[in-house]
Design a protein around this nucleic acid. Structure first.
Length: 514
RNA sequence: GGUCCUUUGGCCGAGUGGCUAGGCUCAGCUCUGCAAAAGCUGCUACGGCGGUUCGAAUCCGCCAGGGACCUCCA
């Protein structure tokens, strides 16, 4: 793989014939052709998790969405630097546990140690991401590891006259910024409205304007995360970490910034303001936002009390769940909708996804087992061009703002063709050699490398496979002797254990685990 | 209250103004010792009312429902 040139991967390379990647840019609210700032390279920043608690289903969406974006950009031949932060600084408390007073007389080991908590949930997050088969970001910086950079940036903002200190805290001067820049453009906010807001919030009286936001907060004694700064002991504000880390690793201006729609305001709006003042340029070319996962039509979130944690989803241990769901089913479920639409959770929908994924994956495995066949004669040109068209659709739909749902729809349209070839009701030779090979290679590339799906069959164990083969052989012998009592006993008892035997048309028998 | 978005068949969910999305469910058929799987066929929807257009789920207006953001939030 070359690091500077565009790899010809069999997909449409950027800029060359065919369709070209278009991305919906939240900043302009329209689809734009994607052009990277540095040819052959892409810088992408995605807002990562706050590791003060366990991740839930809602969190799965952006990381799976942007994992596919990451994979696809690489597939197109770009060298991608994918930065996803870990927010491990802030006002930390563990759920169900009170934040503790640092000066209390408790023994050190009895106290809530913030880094221990942060470590625990970071590990859990990484574990869940692995279950989803997401690729690791190329850089995963932590907020606590970049306090120096954040302080540096705040100092720059003060020096530039866009931030002011008050009682050990530092605030960004939104009114001043708005005088010469378009504060509110990203989130569609009207600055006058923001300045007029008369919301009562704690600490508001320190600000010159209610729209101002904190860059650095003075730490009260009970605040357990604290650092020394030019303004006294405190902790960084809510938005500065992303600006500081994105600037450090991706430069003053980079290609893609991703995150959930709920971060549009104030988080990303503030990020733009901070970075623009410090770096004298708009930080991001393409703002990309995924929509929310809802449950019973409501956004999943702590404040709504409708959260299903990922561990619960994988184990089925939650009152809303009728069963456990394989992480791949969640991934598939998310990919079956467009990332900018809300996605409603329900057991019914997830079960449908589970079945669909199994069917798709079985067909994919069958496809891999098919030989090219003797392509001498009998090419069905109608079928051949239909298959080609469906395959071309993969690129076309993905290039249209990452239309994974439509890519999957095309794959499903190919499933009957593949299964029929397997059952020999359609000869493999009805496809030209070229088309058949394209079908095999594109299916593999797209299903595994781009969509990042994997098998959900639990049967990948050699000894078990041996035992299964033995049972299948015994059953086959019984059947040939018309001893159906024995053959049915084997099948029925296996079925009770959650193993389904399937007699294939070619005389063989396959099995699947629930 | 302000800003924005959304409303698709039993369920989920794509949809660029004209051509079958797709998945799941359900029914029938084929195959099969039976079953499962697979294949085939069927079920054809776009919140309501107007408007633009030769033609609208797709554009515009009004009404109704739902949601997001405005506060930590994926």
């Amino acid at each position: 793989m070359s690091s500077t040139t565009i790899k010809d991967s069999g997909n449409t390379p950027p800029g060359a014939g065919g369709s070209q990647l278009k991305i919906y840019n939240s900043y302009n609210r329209q689809k734009e052709e994607f052009k990277s700032i540095t040819p052959g390279h892409v810088g992408m920043y995605v807002c990562g998790p706050t590791v003060s608690g366990e991740s839930h289903l809602g969190h799965a969406r952006p990381y799976i969405t942007f994992d596919v974006v990451f994979r696809y950009l690489q597939q197109l031949g770009y060298k991608v630097r994918y930065v996803r932060n870990i927010t491990d600084a802030g006002h930390f408390e563990e759920e169900g546990r009170e934040a503790e007073d640092k000066i209390s007389k408790k023994a050190v080991l009895e106290k809530l140690e913030p880094m221990e908590l942060v470590q625990k949930y970071t590990n859990l997050f990484h574990w869940a991401m692995e279950q989803f088969n997401t690729l690791k970001p190329t850089i995963e910086p932590t907020a606590t590891g970049h306090i120096v950079e954040q302080i540096g940036m705040i100092q720059q903002l003060i020096k530039a006259g866009y931030a002011y200190e008050m009682n050990g805290s530092v605030y960004f001067d939104v009114k001043k910024y708005a005088a010469s820049y378009d504060y509110g453009k990203l989130s569609g906010r009207v600055i006058e409205d923001l300045l007029e807001t008369t919301r009562e919030l704690e600490g508001q009286e320190e600000k010159r304007d209610s729209a101002d936001f904190a860059l650095w907060k003075n730490a009260s004694p009970e605040h357990i995360m604290r650092w020394q700064s030019p303004w006294g002991i405190g902790f960084p504000g809510w938005h500065i970490e992303c600006s500081a880390m994105a600037t450090k690793y991706l430069g003053a201006q980079f290609d893609i910034h991703g995150g959930g729609m709920d971060l549009l305001f104030p988080h990303h709006e503030s990020e733009i303001a901070q970075s623009t003042i410090c770096n004298h340029v708009a930080p991001v070319r393409y703002w990309v936002h995924n929509n929310m996962i809802t449950i019973n039509g409501r956004k999943m979130g702590k404040s709504y009390n409708n959260v299903i944690k990922l561990t619960e989803l994988f184990s089925g241990d939650h009152p809303e769940l009728t069963q456990a769901y394989h992480p791949m089913v969640i991934r598939f479920f998310i990919l079956q909708s467009h990332y900018r639409s809300t996605l409603d959770f329900s057991n019914e929908a997830l079960i449908a996804s589970e079945k669909g994924l199994k069917r798709l994956w079985d067909a994919y495995e069958n496809l891999g087992k098919l030989g090219v066949g003797s392509q001498e004669s009998g090419v069905d040109s109608e079928l051949d061009s239909k298959v080609k068209k469906l395959l071309d659709g993969f690129d076309e739909f993905m290039n249209d703002d990452f239309g994974t749902a439509k890519v999957l729809a095309n794959m499903f349209e190919l499933v009957p063709v593949i299964n029929s070839m397997k059952d020999k009701t359609i000869p493999v030779a009805s496809l030209s050699r070229e088309t058949f090979e394209l079908l095999q290679s594109k299916f593999k590339t797209w299903i595994e490398d781009i969509l990042g799906l994997t098998s959900i069959n639990a049967a990948d164990n050699e000894k078990l496979q041996g035992v299964m083969q033995l049972l299948i052989d015994i059953r086959k012998e019984s059947k040939s002797k018309k001893d159906f009592a024995t053959s049915d006993k084997i099948r029925n008892e296996l079925s009770q254990l959650g193993i389904t035997l399937k007699d294939e048309k070619d005389g063989g028998t396959s099995y699947s685990f629930d």
